[in-house]
Design a protein around this nucleic acid. Structure first.
Lengths: 249, 249
DNA sequence: CGCAGCCTTGACCATTATCAACGCTGGTGG
DNA sequence: CCACCAGCGTTGATAATGGTCAAGGCTGCG
């Protein structure tokens, strides 16, 4: 498995390089705190897997046997109701972890959006390694803490924000999580479909489309293509996201 | 501070006694895994505080200097938007932890609903103790993991469920978290106001009231008083919560 | 070139929010 | 002891946001 060694090194490098504004520096220092031998142990558990769009990493209800570290591409995490209603609870990008649950079964499904490469770990072995590696445990602790804060922000969005406010919040958040975003400031890549955005924001595709149009016609954003746009007026977009204006409602 | 010793023992006992259906057994074993000397160290950091309804444990934006363990009563955790819109992200009851964040500042506010007693820890000392106490770390790791799963379920509720489905889900969930619930099966205590329920479910008080009335008139629940009700048809309530019926829509 | 899939736009509808009035309940003071 | 008041909850009428249904457009691929 020695040929796998570059994988976790790559994970660490990507996460360090990612400008996750709120946690970049911290994540880097934690990753940096992992000793060379810890990385080697991680590699021994790792398996590299390629997934095509739509293929599943985890399925709601299946035994939680694996942990994943996304190496490239993007992933949707979602739950389904019996009648097919879908709620996407998050998008994952390279550097993100998946499957960090204490439960025996996955509570949610995860599927590739774009072609994805992941680093897959056996959950039991990973947990055992974690117990022996405080730096790794601390790293995951911080990640879970950030995820929890993000989850609460998302509750605020879903419970109390209007359609336009939700979309504005989404457009501001997305590039801070996607290391594959374009380098030009204000440029946002949308690797997911309108349907996925809708299921993430608790809306329908039509409402997402209309909200985008409204932001476009008011000059706050410019659509460069279906999957790329530019934020023309960041301050106004922030104001809208926080509900500080009725000008766009 | 020796007189504080009973506090964490009490916390442990309460958590163990609570029939948190999904995690009760596990939480108990983890708490049981704490050695006597770990409990003593915890006590040395602990300070008992009483709060009256409406008083704050944490405030959005304040430095996150403390951790809390609720000993009795109930607490609302919430975020506010600039214009006053409120989203309650969770209710906490005796045995629950608060303030487990890696961030420097509290991201959300927490206030007492009923008269509350808490066990307050200095965050830095607690973290230091955690590093020296793997059992404590593992316990918190599990709790965070459960919270994360609960947060995702709540996203499903807020993003995709109807008003009646939200209320049904809430009534089923609440007693599994509230150790002070009445002992009679099917009895649910509502220590929070309609306004708090509304802000938790992403609705208005009027819609909460109407949804309760609908569940009452269809015979699924019976209102015993403003703050207490009985679930008459648990299976039907579960079906409604999962959206498996249109009979109540 | 044509088709399939996704996106946008429009017309209409439904759920829920808003506004308003009324009722209940518990505490206070005449 | 009863009346009043304040606060919370319920109910009703109306309005608005977002959902549903439907048609048409764009884009990329065979």
């Amino acid at each position: 498995m020695l040929q796998l060694r570059p994988i976790s090194a790559e994970c660490v490098a990507r996460r360090a390089a990612s400008a996750c504004d709120s946690c970049g520096a911290r994540a880097f220092s934690v990753c940096g705190g992992l000793a060379e031998q810890d990385l080697l142990r991680l590699d021994a558990l790792a398996e590299r897997i390629n997934l095509r769009p739509g293929e599943a990493l985890t399925r709601q209800g299946d035994p939680a046997d694996h942990l994943f570290n996304i190496t490239s591409g993007s992933v949707r995490v979602f739950g389904l109701m019996p009648d097919g209603r879908r709620q996407i609870t998050g998008f994952l990008f390279s550097g993100d972890f998946l499957g960090l649950a204490a439960e025996a079964d996955y509570a949610f499904s995860a599927e590739a959006i774009e072609p994805v490469t992941v680093c897959r770990f056996d959950a039991r072995e990973y947990r055992a390694l974690m117990l022996r590696t405080p730096a790794l445990e601390a790293q995951l602790f911080r990640r879970m803490s950030h995820e929890l804060t993000a989850a609460r922000d998302q509750m605020m969005l879903l419970g109390r924000k209007t359609a336009v406010e939700r979309l504005a919040s989404f457009l501001l958040d997305l590039p801070t999580h996607d290391p594959a975003r374009p380098t030009a400031p204000g440029h946002v890549r949308l690797p997911m479909t309108r349907s996925e955005i809708a299921d993430y924001l608790g809306l329908t595709i039509e409402t997402v489309s209309r909200a985008l149009t409204r932001l476009k016609t008011t000059g706050v954003i410019r659509l460069l293509s279906l999957t790329e746009l530019r934020i023309e007026q960041p301050d106004r977009l922030r104001a809208i996201a926080q509900g500080e204006t009725r000008s766009c409602a």
